[in-house]
Design a protein around this nucleic acid. Structure first.
Lengths: 191, 191, 191, 191
DNA sequence: TCGTAATCGAGACGGTACGTCCCGTCTTTTC
DNA sequence: GAAAAGACGGGACGTACCGTCTCGATTACGA
């Protein structure tokens, strides 16, 4: 349906605009509807809640813009990936949206599942693929890097810093976080 | 005048009870007041917001119960510390309260500051002291463990798991998290 | 959009019922909303305050029921008019509502203006028309009855008795008040 | 008790000051206590309610200042009496206090009784004495002026104007009201 | 080309919690 | 040991949004 998809886009854009202006928590469905030039019901027709809408908003913001790094060693590519992500967080409300979503996830199992399946697991392979491309898997007694751990530490640190010190997500932080995540995942081989 | 310490205690207890029953987000000041047998104003007199009240609740829950580990090597003491913490999260609403607080911190700079100064920084030294007790500091080119990184990775991983999979914070998770945090903080000496 | 006239009626009826039960001053918007089966906001949407709502309630009560007298001389028609009014005051909370409104008018200029324009001036012509129908206007030196004075004395006496001795507004009082008001307004011609 | 009477006076003065500043309805016991430099309890010790306190305030304001007229005919003495009263209403919050009291009387039978016994009946004789001094009583068929009616019409008109148009209580209004009240009370003898 | 049905904006609605205000009582502290 | 200072339980205030539910106006399609 053409008409629907125009509205759909208008609602996402309005949500981004209002979240940017008012912050995630202060964003109301009413305000989004008004900015989108749409009735409240039209939003509820497609999304059951603010959170559901913003999960899509987050994916929209990040997917549209997150360019994967191309060359270099593991550490530099990971750093570049984070730098791109942090740039998005600085230029759009994506970071604040993410924290808001994590916040609501804590109170609502449905959102928790969608968030964990969508944003966490869904995006995990970007990182794990990157790791696997560069580092040999852990086989037997040989040392290696566990891609899952890289991803979990990465996600955890980004969330924590978004929540506690959202202003300090700059290029330097990206390198620091990448370093910590890689160190955390390095497994020594048994000699 | 002076706050009545009986009321004070009754309000904290009521907050714990209601948060346990209804979850942090669904906990209302009105419900706490009713359970505590207290007027709403009495709560607002001493705490400016639900978050402020629950920061105290969290500290109350954790401080009263968190016994520091005593013996063993760094890894096992850290693991034991986390196991104690996770036990509290299982027996009380402290974990859900913490996640709720982090959630609100994302929307409110005041809470963010109090949370980061109180619960994060305030509790940091429990971990950093533990690390310093066992591991030599990083001096010059010698390898060592950075206590701050241990703490940050610990906090980040605990928060993330509380938010995403609060049910799986068991003894095994404690060991796993402790291992990751120590690995993350190990710095190789330059040979 | 448009207000639902069903709700509108339900709210007026609930207000009458609650005022009758609890008295004007003890009537709360919350109680009216509950009795009307309506959200508080629905009342605030259409009336800015309790007073505004009750001005409409008063008009509703009196307008729906106040039948003008038909035949007889001035004195008897005026008496009958008052008797009808007092009957309303006995059967409905209209009298207590009026006194409550006058009370609030004293503290609030907006209400004062609405009350004085609506209930006082708006209803004045019922009396003045009656007087003009029977009595020759005051022309030159001839004696006559000033309709405005009749009305003002009437209103003042009714209010005062409502405030001080609301139980004694019976048929006898109607005749007495009518007599005083007519006497007050009789102007002697200059001989 | 000397100490008491000083406080007593301080409370009355504070009540006058606050009522003048904030208006009767917005005056709180707390504010009076603060201005008087007195605990709330001290006020409640002597007066059961705001209304009771202000009945005394009203009597204090009017009794201390209302000088009875001395010479002239009935009409001019009555006019002068009202002019004095209206001067008090312009210089002090007495008028606003009176209207506030009448307002509360409508909701509270106790206050109604005290008000009607104290301010209305208690002050009635000032007017009735004045009338009796000048006008022969109504005896048999002879014409005369009924002092009670003079008083009631006077009181009613003053209250009504205080409530509806408190700004227009000037010397002219005094004369007008006196005229109406005397006309209302004049009884024709049966010839 | 038009009438009719579906769609959609606008926003009214019942409801819940908010944070504030002030009441009249009770408690603590100070002088 | 009285009284100021003010904490307290209580209850209404008026506001903000929630998610649902009308209501007309606007569309867009089938006749």
């Amino acid at each position: 349906m053409k008409r629907s998809s125009i509205k759909h886009r208008a609602i996402l854009d309005a949500a981004i605009e209002v979240a940017d202006r008012d912050g995630y928590a202060s964003t109301t469905i009413e305000a989004i509807a008004a900015v989108a030039g749409v009735g409240k019901q039209t939003i509820y027709r497609w999304w059951p809640s603010k959170s559901a809408l913003f999960i899509e908003v987050y994916e929209d913001l990040v997917d549209r813009r997150l360019l994967t790094a191309r060359t270099g060693n593991l550490s530099s590519e990971l750093t570049e990936l984070l730098q791109n992500l942090f740039r998005i967080y600085r230029q759009t409300p994506a970071g604040r949206v993410l924290v808001g979503l994590v916040a609501e996830a804590s109170a609502n199992a449905d959102i928790r599942n969608v968030l964990s399946a969508g944003i966490v697991a869904g995006r995990a392979e970007i990182v794990t693929d990157l790791v696997r491309k560069h580092a040999p898997p852990i086989v037997g007694e040989l040392p290696g890097i566990d891609p899952e751990i890289v991803n979990e530490v990465l996600v955890a640190l980004v969330w924590k810093r978004l929540a506690i010190a959202p202003d300090r997500l700059d290029d330097e932080a990206a390198a620091e976080i990448a370093g910590i995540a890689l160190a955390a995942a390095r497994r020594e081989g048994v000699l």
